[in-house]
Design a protein around this nucleic acid. Structure first.
Lengths: 312, 312
DNA sequence: GGTTGACCTGGGACCGGTTTCATAAATTAT
DNA sequence: ATAATTTATGAAACCGGTCCCAGGTCAACC
């Protein structure tokens, strides 16, 4: 494998000069530049990326921490990140965690080992304090509101706003008894926290009977549907943590010859369009894009993405 | 930033010894090993990943070349790749091309620059010959059948088989006039080529009027529906290159008060389950997993994934 | 004519690891 | 008791670049 020293030797110039040619720097005589370029071309030479990264101390790579790759929520966020990264000449590495804190820690240590310039946490299990501790090793971006006093960069959607409008709309629509489907029922999950908060504002205390947790995909929604269908008194409508999950809920009712229950989903996926139920579009591509910008920028700022309630 | 030399100096031993401790090699006295480990722990030392990669000449990273990240087909393949990579301790970098050959070439050159150990082409615009030329710089895997005489590693689904069974089933079902929706109508696209081939086997020559091209997502399918709806004589059914596209076709009919046209989709996505139409499941996670194995393995083999026709 | 500053070039330290090789001590085999 | 291994350790080359700095040329300006 030919390297920069070979090019230097063959051209008769120094490694420094060849490096200048490679990087299109000035202060190289035209004839020498031409000769070096010819030799590089003849030998089909490509500079070693890893050596450059080591020398420069940066990899132009951002790691994206996410529970699982195949989920429409994260797919949309990734899409935004990847597009922004492509334009900026950065590379994106996918770091699946399955919500395992130990694995998240490994990725943080990889940040310390200079494997990435920055890390985007699209979701997390670790405490925010943990992330902050690693802040000095590279830019860290989280995709939720960490609170004003936190030094973490963050890109997030105004969930509370849109949740409240959606629930308010539902209440005005005559849905008095509202069931809720969530994924992780813990305080780490911003989505869970904010859903409960919004529910409290509009409907008051969220009773256990009105809540189904552990829902991540369609099948879970279907199970949620089975749960809600047997409740007495029945729910008037269901607010779910994703369109596919909402679709599952509704599908259970239809499959079992019941009156299809009104549902409100999230993400404005195809399922909500096909089944024509209301949803909240969080503009996740914009979220991903903003997260990437924060990951490469130096500022520790917060970026709020407006979400949109789509009535159907 | 503390490095291996600092650890060596502080411990009083050589860099070699420290390196041995880091890599859990034998031939280090127990007491020295303990002392070095203590110092590393006290200083919170993490070896620099890039330096190791440079020295070892490998990055434990596989690049995944794909047209766009946010597409259910590629999302499923990526999912399989990422899971397999995670288990093997590899990292996955996403390389979007938007079907631009120039960009594909850039990724191939990044392979030459040792940025990745291997490259998986989930789809491509470049010629197979081009990929083969870069074969000597790292493992290259393509996700289609490159033909027996090709030296490329490949993981692919038996499209022809499943397409023929699906079309045969449709014909026996009484659908005499069958429309087809495709994405890229060129010879590079294996999917396009094989669809035409299967159609020819079952229905004979594929007339231009029975073909709609340029479909990638739901909206395109909707447009395809608009096209087919105005045909006279009308089509009996539509074979589409994806469930979401098939859903779009059918939705156009429903939205416009027409009798919903029977469709056959691909990928067994949620849309085909909600709208209850037949589909072909290509087992894309298995495909991605196989592709990853080939990318890290040394063998230049072909791996066939069985696909499955799901009648609904 | 001397100073200034832009232009050009190469030497070599540096990024932070891995690995080969030489050397020596401690075991084991003969 | 000696030869043959095995174990333990460090020096230094190597991976392949970047970049600081010193030194030299040459035209412009006062």
């Amino acid at each position: 494998m030919t390297n920069i020293h070979d090019i230097a030797r063959l051209s008769g110039y120094s490694v420094s000069t060849v490096s200048r040619v490679i990087n299109h720097q000035k202060y190289v005589a035209d004839d020498k530049r031409a000769k070096v370029e010819k030799i590089m071309h003849d030998l089909d030479y490509v500079p070693n990326r890893v050596a450059r990264d080591l020398s420069k101390g940066q990899t132009k790579t951002i790691g994206v921490v996410l529970p699982y790759a195949n989920h429409p929520y994260f797919a949309r966020v990734i899409d935004g990140i990847v597009m922004a990264a492509f334009e900026a000449g950065y590379k994106i590495t996918l770091l699946p965690t399955n919500y395992d804190m130990t694995i998240e820690r490994q990725y943080l240590d990889q940040l310390r080992s200079k494997a990435y310039d920055g890390l985007i946490f699209t979701s997390r299990s670790s405490q925010l304090e943990t992330l902050e501790r690693y802040r000095k090793y590279g830019q860290i971006v989280c995709c939720e509101d960490p609170g004003a006093d936190r030094p973490l960069a963050a890109a997030y959607t105004d969930r509370l706003d849109s949740f409240v409008s959606a629930l308010t709309w539902a209440k005005q629509h005559g849905y008095q008894k509202m069931g809720v489907v969530l994924s992780r029922n813990n305080v780490i999950s911003a989505s869970t926290r904010i859903t409960r908060q919004a529910y409290e504002q509009v409907y008051g205390h969220l009773a256990d009977r009105d809540l189904f947790t552990g829902a991540v995909k369609y099948e879970d929604g279907y199970r949620a549907g089975a749960y809600f269908a047997q409740l007495d008194p029945a729910e008037d409508a269901i607010f779910a943590n994703g369109d596919d999950i909402a679709a599952g809920v509704q599908q259970y009712y239809t499959d079992h010859g019941l009156e299809p229950i009104p549902v409100i989903g999230q993400e404005n996926l195809l399922s909500s369009r096909l089944l024509k139920f209301s949803t909240i579009d969080h503009h996740l591509e914009a979220l991903g894009q903003a997260a990437f910008r924060l990951a490469t920028g130096q500022s520790t700022t917060h970026k709020l993405i407006k979400s949109e309630f789509i009535k159907r």
